[in-house]
């Protein structure tokens, strides 16, 4: 089997070193790029994201990648803000997002028991079946860092809870996404990345 070539979309400002190291640990080479041709030709595409939704969308629009992402037919993984960018919109700065997944990311409710940002390990509850979940089950912990999240909907594969349930993993056609950081989620996260690389192209 040839190594899948992974294109990581350079949405600017995002810290992707840990993602690239995680891919390397499971034997996958990756390129960080904002070149539409390289993204289109990659076997797998990852849309990462750390930062604010509006600023990230602005960067995607400025390079014309916003339109390209919706046209991709290979497996695409959105991570954290990258997941929220796939949705219709975000309450954060009232940003209009890519609209590939229907839904609006809302601000997590801060309570004394659930401070925001939600930073830390949270268990997930699986509510769908998908090859991305192979070997992953309810009660597995993943590492989250976020202040906004997508509500639970028909695309939800797994939920997590922080002052209320939200979508932790989703899938729609060739697009999958996680609100947590698989690259920082130990064995379970590594498993999810392996599953992503194994998704049928």
């Amino acid at each position: 089997m040839t190594r899948p070539a992974v294109a990581i979309i350079d949405s600017g400002g995002a810290n992707i070193a840990s993602l690239r190291y995680a891919l390397r640990r499971i034997g996958a080479d990756s390129v960080l790029t904002s070149d539409p041709a390289r993204i289109r030709d990659a076997d797998r595409v990852i849309l990462p994201g750390v930062g604010a939704a509006a600023a990230a969308m602005e960067r995607l629009r400025s390079t014309g990648i916003d339109a390209l992402i919706g046209e991709l037919t290979q497996p695409v993984l959105g991570i954290c803000l990258g997941m929220q960018l796939l949705a219709s919109a975000s309450e954060e700065d009232e940003a209009t997002c890519l609209g590939i997944i229907e839904g609006t990311s809302g601000k997590l409710a801060a309570t004394p028991e659930t401070p925001v940002p939600n930073m830390g390990w949270c268990p997930i509850r699986c509510c769908g079946s998908h090859p991305l979940l192979d070997g992953i089950g309810s009660g597995d912990y993943f590492y989250f860092v976020h202040s906004y999240a997508l509500p639970v909907a028909d695309y939800t594969l797994a939920t997590a809870d922080h002052g209320g349930p939200f979508t932790a993993i989703l899938a729609r056609a060739n697009f999958v996404a996680t609100q947590f950081h698989p690259e920082r989620s130990a064995v379970a996260g590594s498993r999810l990345l392996v599953n992503f690389l194994r998704l049928p192209a």
């Binding site: 070193a17 840990s18 190291y21 995680a22 390397r24 640990r25 590492y143 860092v145 950081h181 690259e183 920082r184 989620s185 130990a186 064995v187 996260g189 590594s190």
Partner: peptide
């Protein structure tokens, strides 16, 4: 820092 990042799969 980068050498630590390369081996760690936790934050």
């Amino acid at each position: 820092v980068s050498r630590v990042a390369a081996v760690l799969d936790i934050p």
